[in-house]
Write a protein that binds this DNA or RNA. Structure first.
Length: 260
DNA sequence: TTGATTGTTACCGG
DNA sequence: TCCGGTAACAATCA
C-alpha cells in the first residue's frame, strides 16, 4: 500500500472508506496499542487515545480520528484480506494482517487545529500519565448533578462507560444518585484510583473485569462484574436497584451504597 | 422482525 | 449558564 490512502465507497452508504497500513491490537473502550499506518504516503507516527477517542497521527499534522461509539468494532484477520463485512469505514493493512473498522461513531481526518480542539473538550483520561485529576475534581465538587451522571460525562472525566460507572461506584460504596457537591475529596480520590485500576485491567485483558478474584479467560462474562445486570448484591445478598441515569441503566445496592 | 445496547452530539426549553 | 429531555445515528445479536 505504498501509494498511501485510497478513497473508496463503503458498501452500504456514501461514507468514504480509507485504506492505509497498520499493525494493530484492539482493546476495550476503543483503545489501540502501537501500530503503523500510512495516509497520503505519510507514515503514522503515533496512535494516541484520549478517553474513547483515537487519533492516528501522521506527518503533516494530520490525524485519523476514530471513535467506535456504541456499535463500532475492530475486526482483525490474516491476509489474504477477506471481503469487507458490513459497513467497513476503514481498512488498515500490514504485510500479514488486515484490520477493518466497522460502524464507528466518528471516522474523519483532522488537521492540527481540529485535533487540538477535540483534545481540549475531552476531560482528563484516567489512563493517561498526563491526566489532571484536579480538573475532574473541580467539575464534580461544583456540580449538583448525580455522580453517576458525571462519570458518564466525558468532558468531566474520560474513559469510564456505562458498565464501569456502576461497578466503580459499587466498589467504592457510593450511590450513583449522590450529587457531585456531596462527594468528599476522599471519595473522589477513591473513584479516580479505582477507575485507573479497572481500566488498566481492561486494557490488559481486553475485557471488562471488575471482580478482584476473577479467574483468567476461563471465567464467563457474567462472572467478571459485581453488579451490572445483576439482581442481588454479591456483598450483602440484598436486592440491586436498577434505574435510568444519563439515559442509560445504572445499578446500585441501596444497603451498601447509601445516598449522601 | 423486534428490542436492546460497553456511546456521543445537537437542539430545545426552563 | 446550567441542566434535563428528546431525537438521531450506528451495527449486531438474541
Amino acid at each position: 500500500m505504498p501509494e498511501g490512502h485510497t478513497i473508496h465507497r463503503a458498501a452500504r452508504d456514501q461514507r468514504p472508506m480509507l485504506v492505509g497500513q497498520a499493525l494493530t491490537v484492539a482493546s476495550p473502550q476503543g483503545r489501540f496499542h502501537a501500530g503503523a499506518a500510512v495516509l497520503d504516503g505519510q507514515l503514522c507516527t503515533a496512535i494516541d487515545a484520549y478517553g474513547k477517542h483515537l487519533l492516528y497521527r501522521f506527518a503533516a499534522d494530520h490525524a485519523l480520528h476514530i471513535h467506535l461509539g456504541l456499535f463500532g468494532r475492530f475486526r482483525s484477520s490474516r491476509l489474504p484480506a477477506p471481503e469487507p463485512r458490513g459497513a467497513v469505514r476503514v481498512r488498515l493493512m500490514s504485510g500479514s494482517h488486515v484490520v477493518d473498522i466497522n460502524g464507528p461513531n466518528a471516522c474523519e481526518v483532522l488537521d492540527a487545529h481540529e485535533s487540538a480542539a477535540l483534545i481540549a473538550r475531552i476531560g482528563p483520561d484516567v489512563l493517561r500519565a498526563d491526566a489532571d485529576a484536579e480538573r475532574a475534581w473541580m467539575r464534580i465538587t461544583r456540580s449538583r448533578v448525580a455522580i453517576g451522571q458525571l462519570l458518564m460525562d466525558q468532558s468531566v472525566i474520560a474513559g469510564i462507560g456505562n458498565i464501569y460507572r456502576s461497578e466503580i461506584l459499587w466498589r467504592q460504596r457510593i450511590h450513583p444518585a449522590t450529587p457531585g457537591t456531596a462527594i468528599k475529596r476522599d471519595g473522589f480520590d477513591r473513584i479516580w484510583a479505582d477507575a485507573v485500576h479497572l481500566l488498566a485491567i481492561g486494557v490488559e485483558r481486553n475485557a471488562i473485569v471488575t471482580v478482584d478474584a476473577a479467574r483468567p479467560s476461563r471465567s464467563r462474562y457474567r462472572e467478571r462484574v459485581n453488579i451490572f445486570g445483576k439482581t442481588n448484591c454479591p456483598a450483602c445478598a440484598g436486592p440491586i436497584e436498577r434505574f435510568e441515569l444519563a439515559a442509560r441503566r445504572v445499578f446500585a445496592c441501596t444497603a451498601c451504597q447509601p445516598i449522601l
